[in-house]
Design a protein around this nucleic acid. Structure first.
Lengths: 237, 237
DNA sequence: CGACACATTGAAGAGCCTCAAAAAGGGTGG
DNA sequence: CCACCCTTTTTGAGGCTCTTCAATGTGTCG
Protein backbone atom coordinates (compact mmCIF):
# COMPACT_ATOMS: atom_id res chain seq x y z
CA UNK A 1 0.00 0.00 0.00
CA UNK A 2 2.68 2.43 0.95
CA UNK A 3 4.42 1.15 -2.11
CA UNK A 4 1.66 2.64 -4.18
CA UNK A 5 2.08 5.78 -2.14
CA UNK A 6 5.62 6.16 -3.27
CA UNK A 7 4.81 5.61 -6.90
CA UNK A 8 1.83 7.93 -6.99
CA UNK A 9 3.37 10.51 -4.76
CA UNK A 10 6.40 10.78 -6.93
CA UNK A 11 4.51 10.67 -10.15
CA UNK A 12 6.02 7.40 -11.28
CA UNK A 13 4.27 5.02 -13.61
CA UNK A 14 2.44 2.43 -11.56
CA UNK A 15 3.74 -1.05 -12.09
CA UNK A 16 7.30 0.14 -11.86
CA UNK A 17 9.19 -1.60 -9.09
CA UNK A 18 11.41 0.67 -7.11
CA UNK A 19 14.64 -0.46 -5.58
CA UNK A 20 14.71 0.35 -1.89
CA UNK A 21 17.49 2.84 -2.21
CA UNK A 22 15.74 5.01 -4.76
CA UNK A 23 12.40 4.79 -2.95
CA UNK A 24 14.06 6.11 0.12
CA UNK A 25 16.00 8.81 -1.69
CA UNK A 26 12.93 10.03 -3.48
CA UNK A 27 10.83 10.41 -0.34
CA UNK A 28 13.58 12.20 1.47
CA UNK A 29 13.42 14.93 -1.17
CA UNK A 30 9.98 16.06 -0.03
CA UNK A 31 9.97 19.53 1.51
CA UNK A 32 10.65 19.35 5.23
CA UNK A 33 11.78 15.74 5.20
CA UNK A 34 14.51 14.91 7.68
CA UNK A 35 16.32 11.62 8.03
CA UNK A 36 16.30 10.30 11.59
CA UNK A 37 17.86 7.38 13.40
CA UNK A 38 16.85 5.93 16.74
CA UNK A 39 18.99 3.24 18.39
CA UNK A 40 17.29 0.13 19.69
CA UNK A 41 15.44 0.55 22.97
CA UNK A 42 15.20 4.31 22.86
CA UNK A 43 12.07 6.38 23.08
CA UNK A 44 10.98 8.02 19.85
CA UNK A 45 8.12 9.93 21.42
CA UNK A 46 6.26 9.85 24.66
CA UNK A 47 5.24 11.67 27.76
CA UNK A 48 8.57 13.47 28.11
CA UNK A 49 9.41 13.52 24.43
CA UNK A 50 6.44 15.35 23.01
CA UNK A 51 6.34 15.28 19.25
CA UNK A 52 3.91 15.67 16.39
CA UNK A 53 5.15 14.33 13.14
CA UNK A 54 4.95 11.64 10.53
CA UNK A 55 7.60 8.97 10.27
CA UNK A 56 8.10 6.98 7.12
CA UNK A 57 9.94 3.94 8.41
CA UNK A 58 12.89 2.86 6.34
CA UNK A 59 14.41 0.30 8.70
CA UNK A 60 13.77 -1.24 12.09
CA UNK A 61 10.65 -1.84 14.12
CA UNK A 62 8.90 0.52 16.50
CA UNK A 63 6.17 -0.10 19.06
CA UNK A 64 3.22 2.04 20.14
CA UNK A 65 2.72 1.06 23.75
CA UNK A 66 0.60 2.09 26.71
CA UNK A 67 1.79 1.84 30.27
CA UNK A 68 -0.91 1.43 32.88
CA UNK A 69 -0.99 2.86 36.38
CA UNK A 70 -0.44 -0.66 37.73
CA UNK A 71 2.90 -0.72 35.96
CA UNK A 72 2.15 -3.20 33.21
CA UNK A 73 2.63 -2.44 29.56
CA UNK A 74 0.66 -3.26 26.45
CA UNK A 75 1.86 -2.82 22.91
CA UNK A 76 -1.03 -1.49 20.88
CA UNK A 77 0.55 -1.56 17.44
CA UNK A 78 3.85 -1.74 15.62
CA UNK A 79 5.45 0.25 12.85
CA UNK A 80 7.38 -1.83 10.34
CA UNK A 81 9.73 -0.71 7.60
CA UNK A 82 7.92 1.03 4.74
CA UNK A 83 4.97 1.83 6.92
CA UNK A 84 3.86 5.29 7.94
CA UNK A 85 3.77 6.04 11.65
CA UNK A 86 1.67 9.02 12.58
CA UNK A 87 2.74 10.48 15.89
CA UNK A 88 0.36 12.84 17.63
CA UNK A 89 0.95 14.45 20.95
CA UNK A 90 -1.46 15.55 22.23
CA UNK A 91 -3.18 12.60 20.58
CA UNK A 92 -3.79 12.06 24.27
CA UNK A 93 -3.99 8.35 23.78
CA UNK A 94 -0.98 8.38 26.08
CA UNK A 95 1.04 6.08 23.91
CA UNK A 96 4.80 5.88 24.00
CA UNK A 97 6.63 5.11 20.77
CA UNK A 98 9.76 3.05 21.24
CA UNK A 99 12.39 1.76 18.84
CA UNK A 100 12.52 -2.02 19.27
CA UNK A 101 15.51 -2.35 16.97
CA UNK A 102 17.69 0.27 15.36
CA UNK A 103 15.26 2.49 13.50
CA UNK A 104 15.84 4.78 10.58
CA UNK A 105 13.00 6.87 9.29
CA UNK A 106 12.21 9.93 7.30
CA UNK A 107 10.39 12.50 9.35
CA UNK A 108 7.82 14.92 8.08
CA UNK A 109 7.64 17.27 11.04
CA UNK A 110 4.61 19.08 12.36
CA UNK A 111 1.10 18.15 13.45
CA UNK A 112 -0.69 15.97 10.99
CA UNK A 113 -3.41 18.39 10.03
CA UNK A 114 -0.86 20.87 8.78
CA UNK A 115 0.45 18.22 6.39
CA UNK A 116 -2.65 18.31 4.29
CA UNK A 117 -1.88 21.71 2.95
CA UNK A 118 1.83 21.06 2.50
CA UNK A 119 2.11 17.77 0.70
CA UNK A 120 0.68 16.45 -2.54
CA UNK A 121 -2.71 14.72 -2.37
CA UNK A 122 -1.19 11.30 -2.91
CA UNK A 123 0.90 11.70 0.23
CA UNK A 124 -2.08 12.91 2.19
CA UNK A 125 -4.13 9.97 1.04
CA UNK A 126 -1.35 7.64 2.07
CA UNK A 127 -1.34 9.19 5.52
CA UNK A 128 -5.08 8.78 5.86
CA UNK A 129 -4.85 5.23 4.59
CA UNK A 130 -2.12 4.49 7.10
CA UNK A 131 -4.29 5.76 9.94
CA UNK A 132 -7.30 3.81 8.75
CA UNK A 133 -5.19 0.66 8.53
CA UNK A 134 -3.89 1.29 11.98
CA UNK A 135 -7.41 1.49 13.32
CA UNK A 136 -8.33 -1.79 11.62
CA UNK A 137 -5.35 -3.49 13.15
CA UNK A 138 -6.03 -2.22 16.63
CA UNK A 139 -9.65 -3.32 16.44
CA UNK A 140 -8.62 -6.78 15.29
CA UNK A 141 -6.00 -6.86 18.00
CA UNK A 142 -8.63 -6.00 20.56
CA UNK A 143 -10.91 -8.78 19.40
CA UNK A 144 -8.00 -11.21 19.51
CA UNK A 145 -6.95 -10.36 23.04
CA UNK A 146 -10.54 -10.40 24.22
CA UNK A 147 -11.73 -13.56 22.61
CA UNK A 148 -8.89 -15.74 21.35
CA UNK A 149 -6.89 -18.26 23.33
CA UNK A 150 -3.15 -17.86 23.64
CA UNK A 151 -2.09 -20.19 20.82
CA UNK A 152 -4.75 -18.96 18.44
CA UNK A 153 -3.85 -15.38 19.28
CA UNK A 154 -0.15 -15.88 18.82
CA UNK A 155 -0.63 -17.62 15.50
CA UNK A 156 -2.85 -14.78 14.39
CA UNK A 157 -0.27 -12.25 15.42
CA UNK A 158 2.55 -13.99 13.59
CA UNK A 159 0.44 -14.13 10.46
CA UNK A 160 -0.27 -10.43 10.69
CA UNK A 161 3.40 -9.66 11.03
CA UNK A 162 4.15 -12.00 8.13
CA UNK A 163 1.71 -10.14 5.89
CA UNK A 164 3.00 -6.77 6.94
CA UNK A 165 6.65 -7.54 6.51
CA UNK A 166 6.17 -9.47 3.29
CA UNK A 167 4.05 -6.79 1.67
CA UNK A 168 2.29 -9.04 -0.79
CA UNK A 169 -1.46 -8.95 -1.05
CA UNK A 170 -1.85 -12.64 -1.79
CA UNK A 171 1.06 -14.73 -0.57
CA UNK A 172 2.72 -15.45 2.75
CA UNK A 173 6.46 -15.61 3.31
CA UNK A 174 8.03 -18.83 4.58
CA UNK A 175 10.20 -16.83 6.91
CA UNK A 176 10.77 -13.25 7.98
CA UNK A 177 12.92 -11.35 10.38
CA UNK A 178 11.35 -10.21 13.60
CA UNK A 179 13.40 -8.33 16.18
CA UNK A 180 10.92 -8.83 19.02
CA UNK A 181 11.87 -10.51 22.26
CA UNK A 182 9.42 -12.85 23.93
CA UNK A 183 8.81 -10.13 26.47
CA UNK A 184 7.78 -7.79 23.64
CA UNK A 185 5.52 -10.48 22.26
CA UNK A 186 4.02 -10.92 25.70
CA UNK A 187 3.24 -7.22 25.95
CA UNK A 188 1.68 -7.28 22.52
CA UNK A 189 -0.41 -10.37 23.21
CA UNK A 190 -1.47 -9.58 26.75
CA UNK A 191 0.29 -12.68 28.08
CA UNK A 192 3.18 -13.32 30.44
CA UNK A 193 6.60 -13.83 28.92
CA UNK A 194 6.75 -17.29 30.42
CA UNK A 195 3.54 -18.32 28.76
CA UNK A 196 4.69 -16.93 25.43
CA UNK A 197 7.65 -19.24 25.65
CA UNK A 198 5.31 -22.18 26.16
CA UNK A 199 3.00 -21.14 23.37
CA UNK A 200 5.90 -20.85 20.95
CA UNK A 201 6.99 -24.30 22.01
CA UNK A 202 3.52 -25.60 21.18
CA UNK A 203 3.61 -23.98 17.76
CA UNK A 204 7.01 -25.55 17.16
CA UNK A 205 5.86 -28.98 18.29
CA UNK A 206 2.76 -28.89 16.14
CA UNK A 207 4.96 -27.94 13.20
CA UNK A 208 3.04 -24.73 12.55
CA UNK A 209 5.71 -22.10 13.09
CA UNK A 210 8.93 -21.41 14.88
CA UNK A 211 10.45 -18.23 16.26
CA UNK A 212 14.12 -18.35 17.16
CA UNK A 213 17.11 -16.09 16.87
CA UNK A 214 15.06 -13.21 15.53
CA UNK A 215 13.44 -14.99 12.66
CA UNK A 216 9.96 -16.41 12.34
CA UNK A 217 9.46 -19.45 10.15
CA UNK A 218 5.98 -20.37 9.02
CA UNK A 219 6.07 -24.09 8.42
CA UNK A 220 2.43 -24.67 7.67
CA UNK A 221 0.58 -21.68 6.24
CA UNK A 222 -2.77 -23.41 5.91
CA UNK A 223 -2.58 -24.89 9.38
CA UNK A 224 -1.68 -21.57 10.92
CA UNK A 225 -4.47 -19.75 9.16
CA UNK A 226 -6.92 -22.37 10.31
CA UNK A 227 -5.90 -22.42 13.95
CA UNK A 228 -5.73 -18.62 14.07
CA UNK A 229 -8.99 -18.06 12.25
CA UNK A 230 -7.03 -15.56 10.22
CA UNK A 231 -8.65 -13.41 7.57
CA UNK A 232 -6.16 -10.99 6.13
CA UNK A 233 -8.73 -8.61 4.71
CA UNK A 234 -8.43 -6.29 7.71
CA UNK A 235 -4.84 -5.50 6.81
CA UNK A 236 -3.91 -2.44 4.78
CA UNK A 237 -7.46 -1.22 4.35
CA UNK B 1 -17.22 18.21 22.84
CA UNK B 2 -19.97 17.55 20.37
CA UNK B 3 -21.84 20.16 22.28
CA UNK B 4 -19.33 22.69 21.09
CA UNK B 5 -19.76 21.25 17.63
CA UNK B 6 -23.39 22.13 17.59
CA UNK B 7 -22.82 25.65 18.80
CA UNK B 8 -20.03 26.44 16.44
CA UNK B 9 -21.55 24.63 13.55
CA UNK B 10 -24.72 26.53 13.83
CA UNK B 11 -23.06 29.82 14.49
CA UNK B 12 -24.46 30.18 17.96
CA UNK B 13 -22.81 32.17 20.67
CA UNK B 14 -20.68 29.87 22.74
CA UNK B 15 -21.77 29.67 26.32
CA UNK B 16 -25.34 29.32 25.31
CA UNK B 17 -26.88 26.14 26.60
CA UNK B 18 -29.08 24.44 24.10
CA UNK B 19 -32.09 22.47 25.07
CA UNK B 20 -31.98 19.00 23.59
CA UNK B 21 -34.92 19.54 21.34
CA UNK B 22 -33.46 22.58 19.61
CA UNK B 23 -30.00 21.00 19.32
CA UNK B 24 -31.59 18.12 17.54
CA UNK B 25 -33.76 20.24 15.32
CA UNK B 26 -30.86 22.45 14.32
CA UNK B 27 -28.60 19.59 13.25
CA UNK B 28 -31.36 17.97 11.27
CA UNK B 29 -31.52 21.09 9.12
CA UNK B 30 -28.10 20.39 7.61
CA UNK B 31 -28.22 19.52 3.92
CA UNK B 32 -28.67 15.80 3.40
CA UNK B 33 -29.60 15.10 7.00
CA UNK B 34 -32.14 12.36 7.50
CA UNK B 35 -33.73 11.28 10.74
CA UNK B 36 -33.45 7.56 11.35
CA UNK B 37 -34.75 5.14 13.93
CA UNK B 38 -33.46 1.66 14.67
CA UNK B 39 -35.35 -0.59 17.09
CA UNK B 40 -33.39 -2.34 19.82
CA UNK B 41 -31.41 -5.36 18.70
CA UNK B 42 -31.40 -4.54 15.02
CA UNK B 43 -28.40 -4.18 12.78
CA UNK B 44 -27.58 -0.63 11.74
CA UNK B 45 -24.77 -1.64 9.43
CA UNK B 46 -22.73 -4.74 8.80
CA UNK B 47 -21.67 -7.37 6.37
CA UNK B 48 -25.05 -7.55 4.70
CA UNK B 49 -26.10 -3.99 5.40
CA UNK B 50 -23.32 -2.07 3.71
CA UNK B 51 -23.42 1.60 4.50
CA UNK B 52 -21.18 4.62 4.54
CA UNK B 53 -22.49 7.48 6.55
CA UNK B 54 -22.26 9.53 9.66
CA UNK B 55 -24.75 9.14 12.46
CA UNK B 56 -25.29 11.81 15.03
CA UNK B 57 -26.87 9.87 17.86
CA UNK B 58 -29.85 11.53 19.46
CA UNK B 59 -31.10 8.63 21.61
CA UNK B 60 -30.19 5.06 22.43
CA UNK B 61 -26.94 3.14 22.48
CA UNK B 62 -25.22 1.36 19.60
CA UNK B 63 -22.32 -1.10 19.61
CA UNK B 64 -19.46 -1.58 17.16
CA UNK B 65 -18.71 -5.28 17.40
CA UNK B 66 -16.52 -7.84 15.72
CA UNK B 67 -17.52 -11.46 15.35
CA UNK B 68 -14.67 -13.93 15.13
CA UNK B 69 -14.50 -17.09 13.07
CA UNK B 70 -14.76 -19.10 16.29
CA UNK B 71 -18.19 -17.60 16.85
CA UNK B 72 -17.42 -15.31 19.75
CA UNK B 73 -18.11 -11.62 19.74
CA UNK B 74 -16.28 -8.61 21.03
CA UNK B 75 -17.67 -5.12 21.33
CA UNK B 76 -14.97 -2.71 20.25
CA UNK B 77 -16.72 0.56 21.06
CA UNK B 78 -20.09 2.10 21.74
CA UNK B 79 -21.94 5.10 20.42
CA UNK B 80 -23.88 7.04 23.02
CA UNK B 81 -26.43 9.81 22.57
CA UNK B 82 -24.85 13.05 21.35
CA UNK B 83 -21.85 11.24 19.97
CA UNK B 84 -20.92 10.97 16.34
CA UNK B 85 -20.67 7.47 14.89
CA UNK B 86 -18.73 7.24 11.67
CA UNK B 87 -19.72 4.20 9.68
CA UNK B 88 -17.41 3.12 6.92
CA UNK B 89 -17.90 0.12 4.72
CA UNK B 90 -15.53 -0.78 3.32
CA UNK B 91 -13.70 0.36 6.40
CA UNK B 92 -12.90 -3.34 6.20
CA UNK B 93 -12.49 -3.52 9.92
CA UNK B 94 -15.34 -6.00 9.62
CA UNK B 95 -17.34 -4.39 12.36
CA UNK B 96 -21.07 -4.74 12.74
CA UNK B 97 -23.02 -1.85 14.20
CA UNK B 98 -26.00 -2.86 16.28
CA UNK B 99 -28.66 -0.91 18.13
CA UNK B 100 -28.54 -2.04 21.77
CA UNK B 101 -31.61 -0.04 22.68
CA UNK B 102 -34.04 1.90 20.52
CA UNK B 103 -31.85 4.29 18.58
CA UNK B 104 -32.70 7.54 16.92
CA UNK B 105 -30.06 9.37 14.98
CA UNK B 106 -29.56 11.95 12.31
CA UNK B 107 -27.79 10.50 9.33
CA UNK B 108 -25.47 12.37 7.03
CA UNK B 109 -25.27 9.91 4.17
CA UNK B 110 -22.28 9.13 2.01
CA UNK B 111 -18.66 8.14 2.55
CA UNK B 112 -16.85 10.28 5.06
CA UNK B 113 -14.35 11.83 2.72
CA UNK B 114 -17.14 13.37 0.65
CA UNK B 115 -18.38 15.12 3.78
CA UNK B 116 -15.42 17.39 3.95
CA UNK B 117 -16.47 19.30 0.89
CA UNK B 118 -20.14 19.38 1.82
CA UNK B 119 -20.31 20.51 5.40
CA UNK B 120 -18.99 23.53 7.25
CA UNK B 121 -15.50 23.25 8.76
CA UNK B 122 -16.83 23.04 12.29
CA UNK B 123 -18.76 19.91 11.38
CA UNK B 124 -15.76 18.40 9.68
CA UNK B 125 -13.60 19.10 12.68
CA UNK B 126 -16.16 17.48 14.91
CA UNK B 127 -16.09 14.39 12.71
CA UNK B 128 -12.32 14.20 12.87
CA UNK B 129 -12.39 14.76 16.61
CA UNK B 130 -14.93 11.98 16.98
CA UNK B 131 -12.71 9.59 15.09
CA UNK B 132 -9.65 10.56 17.07
CA UNK B 133 -11.57 10.06 20.30
CA UNK B 134 -12.72 6.71 19.07
CA UNK B 135 -9.16 5.65 18.47
CA UNK B 136 -8.13 6.75 21.95
CA UNK B 137 -10.94 4.76 23.47
CA UNK B 138 -10.15 1.63 21.53
CA UNK B 139 -6.47 1.83 22.47
CA UNK B 140 -7.35 2.24 26.13
CA UNK B 141 -9.84 -0.58 25.82
CA UNK B 142 -7.13 -2.78 24.35
CA UNK B 143 -4.75 -2.04 27.19
CA UNK B 144 -7.48 -2.76 29.69
CA UNK B 145 -8.43 -6.13 28.25
CA UNK B 146 -4.79 -7.09 27.90
CA UNK B 147 -3.49 -6.00 31.25
CA UNK B 148 -6.24 -5.35 33.75
CA UNK B 149 -7.99 -7.88 35.96
CA UNK B 150 -11.74 -8.34 35.68
CA UNK B 151 -12.79 -6.07 38.55
CA UNK B 152 -10.33 -3.35 37.65
CA UNK B 153 -11.40 -3.55 34.02
CA UNK B 154 -15.09 -3.43 34.80
CA UNK B 155 -14.66 -0.46 37.12
CA UNK B 156 -12.68 1.30 34.43
CA UNK B 157 -15.35 0.61 31.88
CA UNK B 158 -18.15 1.89 34.08
CA UNK B 159 -16.19 5.07 34.71
CA UNK B 160 -15.70 5.58 31.00
CA UNK B 161 -19.40 5.16 30.38
CA UNK B 162 -20.13 7.53 33.24
CA UNK B 163 -17.93 10.21 31.71
CA UNK B 164 -19.37 9.73 28.29
CA UNK B 165 -22.98 9.79 29.30
CA UNK B 166 -22.55 12.62 31.79
CA UNK B 167 -20.67 14.85 29.36
CA UNK B 168 -18.91 16.93 31.95
CA UNK B 169 -15.17 17.41 31.73
CA UNK B 170 -14.60 17.48 35.47
CA UNK B 171 -17.34 15.73 37.42
CA UNK B 172 -18.78 12.26 37.57
CA UNK B 173 -22.47 11.45 37.82
CA UNK B 174 -23.78 9.49 40.79
CA UNK B 175 -25.95 7.46 38.50
CA UNK B 176 -26.67 7.04 34.82
CA UNK B 177 -28.83 4.92 32.61
CA UNK B 178 -27.16 2.07 30.81
CA UNK B 179 -29.19 -0.25 28.59
CA UNK B 180 -26.55 -2.98 28.42
CA UNK B 181 -27.22 -6.52 29.51
CA UNK B 182 -24.54 -8.44 31.36
CA UNK B 183 -23.97 -10.39 28.17
CA UNK B 184 -23.24 -7.12 26.36
CA UNK B 185 -20.89 -6.13 29.14
CA UNK B 186 -19.17 -9.49 28.84
CA UNK B 187 -18.64 -9.00 25.12
CA UNK B 188 -17.23 -5.56 25.76
CA UNK B 189 -14.93 -6.69 28.55
CA UNK B 190 -13.75 -9.96 27.06
CA UNK B 191 -15.27 -11.94 29.93
CA UNK B 192 -18.01 -14.52 30.25
CA UNK B 193 -21.46 -13.32 31.21
CA UNK B 194 -21.32 -15.47 34.32
CA UNK B 195 -18.15 -13.84 35.46
CA UNK B 196 -19.53 -10.39 34.81
CA UNK B 197 -22.33 -11.21 37.20
CA UNK B 198 -19.78 -12.13 39.86
CA UNK B 199 -17.69 -9.05 39.25
CA UNK B 200 -20.73 -6.81 39.58
CA UNK B 201 -21.53 -8.55 42.81
CA UNK B 202 -18.05 -7.78 44.06
CA UNK B 203 -18.42 -4.13 43.14
CA UNK B 204 -21.71 -4.03 44.96
CA UNK B 205 -20.32 -5.71 48.04
CA UNK B 206 -17.35 -3.39 48.20
CA UNK B 207 -19.75 -0.47 47.94
CA UNK B 208 -18.06 0.88 44.82
CA UNK B 209 -20.83 0.68 42.26
CA UNK B 210 -24.01 -1.14 41.41
CA UNK B 211 -25.62 -1.98 38.12
CA UNK B 212 -29.23 -3.07 38.23
CA UNK B 213 -32.39 -2.53 36.26
CA UNK B 214 -30.59 -0.63 33.56
CA UNK B 215 -28.99 1.98 35.78
CA UNK B 216 -25.46 2.23 37.05
CA UNK B 217 -24.88 3.83 40.42
CA UNK B 218 -21.44 4.99 41.37
CA UNK B 219 -21.33 4.87 45.14
CA UNK B 220 -17.69 5.72 45.66
CA UNK B 221 -16.10 7.78 42.91
CA UNK B 222 -12.66 7.99 44.50
CA UNK B 223 -12.57 4.31 45.31
CA UNK B 224 -13.62 3.35 41.81
CA UNK B 225 -11.03 5.59 40.21
CA UNK B 226 -8.37 4.12 42.45
CA UNK B 227 -9.22 0.48 41.84
CA UNK B 228 -9.60 1.05 38.12
CA UNK B 229 -6.47 3.13 37.72
CA UNK B 230 -8.69 5.49 35.78
CA UNK B 231 -7.32 8.59 34.09
CA UNK B 232 -10.03 10.31 32.11
CA UNK B 233 -7.67 12.30 29.91
CA UNK B 234 -7.98 9.77 27.10
CA UNK B 235 -11.64 10.58 26.68
CA UNK B 236 -12.91 13.06 24.13
CA UNK B 237 -9.49 13.96 22.81
C1' DC C 1 35.97 -16.15 31.36
C1' DG C 2 32.44 -13.66 33.52
C1' DA C 3 28.49 -10.76 32.98
C1' DC C 4 24.17 -9.95 31.17
C1' DA C 5 20.01 -10.44 28.55
C1' DC C 6 16.99 -13.75 26.91
C1' DA C 7 14.73 -18.30 26.87
C1' DT C 8 13.17 -22.54 28.96
C1' DT C 9 11.27 -25.54 32.39
C1' DG C 10 8.83 -27.03 36.70
C1' DA C 11 5.55 -26.53 40.36
C1' DA C 12 1.80 -24.47 42.59
C1' DG C 13 -2.00 -21.59 42.63
C1' DA C 14 -5.21 -17.65 41.17
C1' DG C 15 -8.48 -16.27 37.93
C1' DC C 16 -11.73 -17.07 34.79
C1' DC C 17 -14.56 -20.44 32.16
C1' DT C 18 -18.01 -23.98 31.36
C1' DC C 19 -21.85 -26.54 32.64
C1' DA C 20 -25.97 -26.70 35.05
C1' DA C 21 -29.82 -25.21 37.60
C1' DA C 22 -32.60 -22.04 39.95
C1' DA C 23 -34.35 -17.35 40.84
C1' DA C 24 -35.91 -12.92 39.39
C1' DG C 25 -37.81 -9.61 36.03
C1' DG C 26 -40.58 -8.19 32.14
C1' DG C 27 -43.94 -8.61 28.83
C1' DT C 28 -48.23 -10.68 26.89
C1' DG C 29 -52.70 -12.49 26.56
C1' DG C 30 -56.52 -14.00 28.95
C1' DC D 1 -54.83 -8.83 37.88
C1' DC D 2 -52.98 -13.25 37.19
C1' DA D 3 -50.70 -17.06 34.62
C1' DC D 4 -47.38 -17.93 31.45
C1' DC D 5 -43.19 -17.54 28.81
C1' DC D 6 -38.88 -15.79 27.83
C1' DT D 7 -34.88 -13.21 28.86
C1' DT D 8 -31.67 -11.97 32.22
C1' DT D 9 -29.29 -12.65 36.47
C1' DT D 10 -27.54 -15.33 40.19
C1' DT D 11 -25.28 -19.16 42.36
C1' DG D 12 -22.61 -23.58 42.79
C1' DA D 13 -19.15 -26.95 41.44
C1' DG D 14 -15.36 -28.37 38.95
C1' DG D 15 -11.73 -27.74 35.67
C1' DC D 16 -8.63 -25.57 32.35
C1' DT D 17 -5.73 -21.68 31.21
C1' DC D 18 -2.63 -18.67 32.33
C1' DT D 19 0.27 -16.52 36.05
C1' DT D 20 3.83 -16.20 39.44
C1' DC D 21 7.95 -17.60 41.50
C1' DA D 22 12.12 -19.72 41.11
C1' DA D 23 15.76 -22.14 39.04
C1' DT D 24 18.34 -23.61 35.11
C1' DG D 25 19.95 -23.26 30.38
C1' DT D 26 21.65 -20.67 26.25
C1' DG D 27 23.64 -17.00 23.50
C1' DT D 28 26.37 -12.74 23.12
C1' DC D 29 29.74 -9.65 23.98
C1' DG D 30 33.40 -7.23 26.26
Amino acid sequence: MEMSLSKQALGLASGLTLADASWERAISVLPGAVRRTYPANTTIAGEYHAKSSILIMTAGWAAFAKTLPNGSRLIVDFALPREIAVIEFAGKAGETITALSDVTAIELAGPVHTSFSRYPPSICEAILRAEAGRYSRVAEHLAGIGRRGAVERTAHFLLELACRSHRSATTYPDRFECPLTQADLADALGLSAVHVSRVLKTLRETALASFRYGVVELHDHAGLIKTAGFDRSYISS
